[in-house]
Amino acid sequence: MSERRPVASLWIGEKLHYLNQLCLKSHVEAGHPTTLYCTDDVQNAPEGVEVRPASDIMQIDMDLVATTSASFLSNVFRYKMIRETGAIWIDCDAFCHQPFPDDQEYIFGEHGLSGALNCGVVALPRECEMMDQLLDYYDNLPDYPPWWNKNQRRKYDKADPTLSHAARIYKAERTAFGPQAFTWFAKQAGQFEKALPRDVLYPVPFQLNDIFYDPHGNVEGHFTDNTLSVHLYTNGTKPWWEKHVPPPGSYAARMCEKIGIDPSQALK
């Protein structure tokens, strides 16, 4: 168990929500050494999670976070972390259903109903063309992301000119640093075909994320024998669920009971 591949994530903020606790601890329970890089002094990380400063990997520009979102710079952080440590990136809302395979260099997958890629769970070789292209994109942002059409460029041009270049890209297209960039550079590096089918990492479509709180929802009906990770999509969670414990019998409640997380102790 102790020899499983390490996984890591980033938390920008002072306190984890219970779903984040649940997802991090699920990797510990599966035997993955789990590191959480933090910008603040997080005191409620689950037992077994190693908490380290985010500055071990890169400095987080909190002014840029304030004009974008808490998850915005995680899109840069994850690749710098992989290159530095070789760990598998996991979003803090990715629940470990089965341990990740020991011998698979590329781990990323199709997402949602469109077949596009997501970067909520990512393993890449520390030295590879795709990694080089992603890091070069973030370190040397072009005037416009190369895949943008005229409408997207027009949105950028209309954004507040007092904002930074990166923030204006974000305002024009929220996912231009995340799934859009990942999908584009996977294609550019000839690695798009390595994407795992949706059932492996994102078995439940984003559009159905309320199912995790439905006691009568058949969440496991979306799973297959190949499912490794279950994305809980906390960025799309309705505010109600952030402030209330999940109903008994729901997937969220059952997994908390299984893993040993008390939702009432970590609500927003």
Rank of each mutant, 00 (worst) to 15 (best):
D93T: 03
F77I: 08
L73T: 05
K268W: 15
L135E: 09
N20M: 11
S250C: 10
S164F: 09
D102K: 10
L135T: 04
L134D: 00
K150R: 11
V7P: 00
E50R: 05
D40K: 03
W147R: 01
A266D: 12
W241G: 00
R174G: 12
D143L: 13
S69M: 13
L113Y: 08
D40A: 14
D132Y: 01
D41P: 07
P239G: 11
Q21N: 14
G249A: 08
P246G: 06
C96P: 07
S55T: 15
G86V: 04
V204R: 00
T183N: 13
H32P: 08
Q265R: 13
C38H: 03
A253V: 06
L22F: 05
K155E: 12
R254I: 09
P101F: 13
Q152D: 14
F100T: 04
V219S: 02
Q43I: 13
A8T: 02
E193R: 06
P146F: 10
R154F: 15
L22Y: 01
K258W: 06
D40T: 08
I82G: 01
D210Y: 05
L201D: 02
L73D: 04
Q188F: 08
M131G: 04
K25Y: 11
S114F: 06
D262A: 13
Y170Q: 03
L232M: 15
A123P: 09
P6H: 03
T85R: 03
Q133P: 06
V204F: 04
E3P: 03
L73K: 03
Y18M: 06
P6E: 05
T227Y: 02
P239N: 11
K187M: 07
W184H: 14
I169S: 00
P203R: 00
Q191T: 14
G86L: 04
V65N: 06
G120P: 04
A94N: 11
Q191P: 05
T35F: 03
K158S: 11
M58H: 04
L73R: 01
N118Q: 07
T227H: 02
F223L: 10
L10P: 02
P179A: 14
Q104E: 15
D132G: 03
L201V: 07
P179S: 15
K243H: 12
Q21K: 09
F192R: 02
T234H: 09
I82C: 04
F108D: 00
H32A: 08
P215D: 09
D63A: 15
P101K: 02
H17M: 08
A166G: 09
L64D: 10
S250F: 12
F108S: 00
P248E: 14
M130W: 01
G190D: 14
K238Q: 15
L22Q: 01
G112I: 04
R126H: 05
V200P: 01
E193I: 10
E129V: 13
G190T: 12
A159W: 00
D61E: 11
F182C: 01
H27S: 09
P53R: 03
K158C: 10
H244S: 12
E173M: 10
G236Q: 10
G31T: 10
W148E: 01
V245D: 07
A70C: 11
